[in-house]
């Protein structure tokens, strides 16, 4: 009886010590994470952020607007065609998101392999669609054969 009580006491102490050790270590500030998030101030990054906000579905218009406004007031405008950014802001004001996104892409074109290393082809999503080519139909026939073969194996 006493042995059982001692065992359960040791177990409780062990578990408590383990939990305290885990919590204590978790609470230690890891030096690796001391870096703080810094709001970018250069137009290039801000325009890229605005573009990223425009390219999601549905477009994050308020986020994009905020970033464009900050870009318009940025001191460092290297690699960005600011006239295009102004036109993007105007298009966004008219809620023409497609035109705004196009203007932002155009604004970054001078930056191709320039400051920031932005490649204009990478600014747009690559979204393939069903091609409807003979190869696509051959692959679909292959898929149908696999489905049929699977069904056959299960039934046998």
């Amino acid at each position: 009886m006493r042995g059982t009580r001692d065992r359960s006491r040791r177990l409780t102490i062990g578990v408590t010590a383990g939990v305290l050790l885990v919590l204590g270590l978790s609470a230690l500030p890891a030096r690796a994470y001391l870096e703080a998030a810094v709001e970018p101030s250069d137009a290039l990054t801000l325009v890229r952020q605005a573009l990223a906000a425009m390219e999601v579905t549905p477009p994050a218009v308020s986020v994009a607007t905020g970033k464009i406004i900050k870009a318009l007031f940025a001191r460092d405008t290297r690699g960005v065609d600011m006239t295009r950014v102004q036109e993007a802001a105007q298009a966004l004001g008219e809620l023409d998101t497609a035109a705004a996104a196009a203007q932002l892409i155009a604004a970054l074109r001078p930056a191709r392999m320039g400051p920031g290393g932005v490649d204009a082809t990478l600014l747009m999503p690559l979204q393939p669609r069903f091609a409807g080519t003979p190869t696509a139909y051959v692959l679909l026939v292959g898929a149908a054969l696999l489905l049929a073969a699977g069904g056959l194996i299960i039934r046998r």
Binding site: L123, P125, Q127, L139, L140, A143, L146, I154
Partner: peptide, 24 residues
């Protein structure tokens, strides 16, 4: 057999709805 069916389904989906790639 079910593995064949899964592969067939994945192939059909890959052809009909190929996954895209977002901007950098």
């Amino acid at each position: 057999g079910y593995g064949c069916i899964m592969l067939g389904l994945a192939l059909a989906l890959a052809v009909i709805w190929p996954p895209g790639e977002g901007p950098a």
